[in-house]
Design a protein around this nucleic acid. Structure first.
Length: 584
RNA sequence: GGGGACGUGGUGUAGUCUGGUUUAAACACACUGCCCUGUCAAGGCAGAGACCGCGGGUUCAAAUCCCGUCGUCCCCGCCA
């Protein structure tokens, strides 16, 4: 029997027609005299009816069990009055079976193929093929396909060319840890899997392709998280003869189209923009979640000479004091506030100071150190209301910013201040070009070393600290969707950057000499951006983890329970590669 | 490298804090059999199924307390 339709796509226009469908037995309701089966395929469910008059099919129906694979021929008809199911798109019709064929059977399942139960991730990944059968999952992956398709249709219409770049490439120890692939033909040498196609796409610009994109896998051998996998997918694009606004405009219009055509949601463009400095000050993060307010306030000037020595001495040593006003937080108990303190300590703070705005005045263990005017300033700066809780941190800037940023997010979630149906896009711009790495005593780029500085000043180790980058990150609901920049297209500027980054024993100039060369041969001004495809899909699907939109993800310990990877390999394989294992 | 949560029939959980007749473990779903001609997360009756992740210790007695170990998840570090 040749299939004529998907189960989930049959509609009333097929009434009185004979059709053939194939699928899995989703559920079986045996009434003794009549048997109903919900047959499932990727498009959805259709109720099929076995009637006792047809003895042959009825006998087979009695044998059907969950997840049996069958093909069914029958007549589509309108369901009898009062038996419609409004929960199904096919709920007004059913298929009366005239012929049925069991294509495969299925033993007892390790878990039910339904949306109604949370199964442990371990089991889900071991039986990923069953897990992926669940309707909610099929939906996620159909959506993921649509997103990719809309991206391609849009970028194609904007004259972008899809060009592939290699997976076997060169290891560059900056940034994330590389996955290494031993070379059989070059003993002792290794390829690396790309952390991103960054340099390839820049070279494609030098080659004159003008606009490039790729939906491409990237690899980073770092620890995994809910939003991080060893291999992940990026929408990677690059454009020639552009400035920041041109790239940002393309991305905004692309996302507008994707959200409209996939979710039927109108997002507002252009996205709001915020400077890096502002984001760090107000939200304590370079990827602020602006779905709720609760902004951080700085008191480093106000408390410079205050009587509370913890504050004034930190400030005199170059540190800062900032605080957060938690609406209706005064009802938190002492131990709950201690919990916040421990949370802050986890992020590197030494302690946390709090004040409750009560009817009787401000309640706090340190209230005696503060003058009335100072309390007034605190209250007015926050716009604090009765019943609010204010917390302060005093430390070096990095610690305070990070802690309060994390605490703000935690409170936003716990107090349910976040509107889950909102999509808040945001550009973070004006990043510093570099930051000083105290431990290693050297300059480090915030983005990557190919990012163009703002302005045309000649850069050196003295003035680089104040330079801004032509870089931009696109943020959605506090998650970094992607980042990009205008790249350096002049060899002399790129050389300056490498000089600043280089330590005495390693020269970036040598490692990237091919790039410096390429830039001299007529490199056009160019820039681009890379978007985390998995993250976009997870956000659009309302999932908390990108694993829910990746068909075969790894566990947090970086293994695959289905294939049981990674594994050791044979001596023969190792010998061919001239690799010896030395497990300590 | 570090912090935390969890691990009980096939699945999801209760029981763990305060060790012991709420019979060596309860409930729901799934499973098996029977009944049932309009259900749709069908219903009814009956049944099978776990020595409580693994190892060790404390104790008269351990799912329960302690130590170790493995696994899953969340977070810090890390992710230019």
């Amino acid at each position: 029997m040749k299939r004529s339709s998907y189960c989930g796509n049959v509609r009333e226009d097929s009434i009185d027609k004979d059709i053939v469908i194939c699928g899995w037995v989703h559920s079986r309701r045996d009434h003794g005299g009549v048997i109903f089966i919900d047959l499932r395929d990727r498009e959805g469910l259709l109720q099929i009816v076995f009637q006792p008059e047809n003895k042959e099919t009825f006998k087979i129906a009695e044998r059907l069990r969950s997840e049996y694979v069958v093909s069914v021929k029958g007549l589509v008809r309108k369901r009898p009055k009062g038996t419609l199911n409004p929960n199904l798109l096919t709920g007004s019709i059913e298929l009366v079976v005239s012929k049925v064929e069991i294509l495969n059977t299925c033993p007892g399942l390790p878990f039910e193929v339904s949306n109604y139960r949370e199964i442990s991730e371990e089991l889900r990944l071991k039986y990923r093929y069953l897990d992926l059968r669940r309707p909610s999952f099929q939906k996620n992956f159909i959506m993921r396909h649509k997103v990719a398709n809309e991206v391609r249709v849009f970028l194609n219409s904007e004259s972008f060319l899809e060009i592939e770049t290699p997976f076997l490439t060169k290891s560059t120890p900056e940034g994330a840890r590389d996955f290494l692939v031993p070379s059989r033909l070059h003993h002792g040498s290794f390829f690396a899997l790309p952390q991103s196609p960054q340099l390839f796409k820049q070279i494609l610009m030098i080659s004159g392709f003008d606009k490039y994109y790729q939906i491409v896998k990237c690899f980073r051998d770092e620890d995994l998280r809910a939003d991080r996998q060893l291999e992940f997918t990026q929408i990677d694009l690059e454009m020639s003869f552009v400035e920041e606004n041109d790239v940002m405009d393309v991305i905004e219009r692309m996302l507008l189209r994707v959200f409209k055509n996939v979710l039927n949601i109108e997002i507002k463009i252009p996205f709001e923009r915020i400077s890096y400095a502002d984001a760090m000050l107000r939200y304590g993060s370079d990827k602020p979640d602006t779905r709720f307010e609760m902004e951080i306030k700085d008191f480093s000037i106000e408390f410079k000479e205050c009587d509370f020595k913890v504050f004034s001495s930190v400030i005199s040593k170059g540190g800062i004091v900032r605080g957060l006003c938690i609406p209706e937080g005064a009802s938190f108990s002492r131990s709950e506030i201690d919990g916040f303190k421990n949370f802050a300590i986890e992020y590197g703070a030494k302690g946390l100071v709090w004040m409750k705005i009560m009817e009787s005045g401000v309640e706090s263990g340190i209230i005696k150190y503060f003058k009335d005017e100072e309390i007034k300033v605190i209250k007015s700066k926050f716009g604090a209301k009765l019943g609010d809780l204010i917390v302060f941190l005093a430390d070096e800037e990095k610690v305070v910013v990070q802690c309060l940023g994390a605490l703000r997010l935690k409170m936003g979630k716990e107090l349910d201040l976040i509107d889950k149906f909102k999509f808040n896009f945001l550009w973070v711009v004006d990043f510093p070009l570099m930051e000083w790495n105290k431990e290693e005593e050297r300059w480090q780029t915030l983005h990557h070393p190919f990012t163009s500085p703002q302005g045309v000043v000649s850069l050196n180790k003295k003035n680089v600290g104040t330079a801004k980058a032509k870089a931009y990150d696109v943020i959605l609901n506090g998650i970094e969707l992607g980042g990009g920049s205008i790249r350096i297209h002049r060899s002399d500027v790129q050389k300056e950057i490498f000089d600043i980054l280089s330590t005495s024993d390693e020269s970036a100039k040598e490692k990237f000499s091919f790039l410096l060369d390429a830039l001299t041969y007529g490199a056009p001004p160019h820039g681009g951006l890379a978007l985390g495809f998995d993250r976009i899909c997870a956000l659009m699907a309302g999932e908390d983890s990108i694993r829910e939109v990746i068909a075969f993800p790894k566990t947090q310990k970086a293994s695959d329970p289905l294939f049981n990877a990674p594994t050791s390999v044979s001596e023969k394989q190792l010998k061919e590669l001239n690799v010896r294992i030395d497990v300590g």
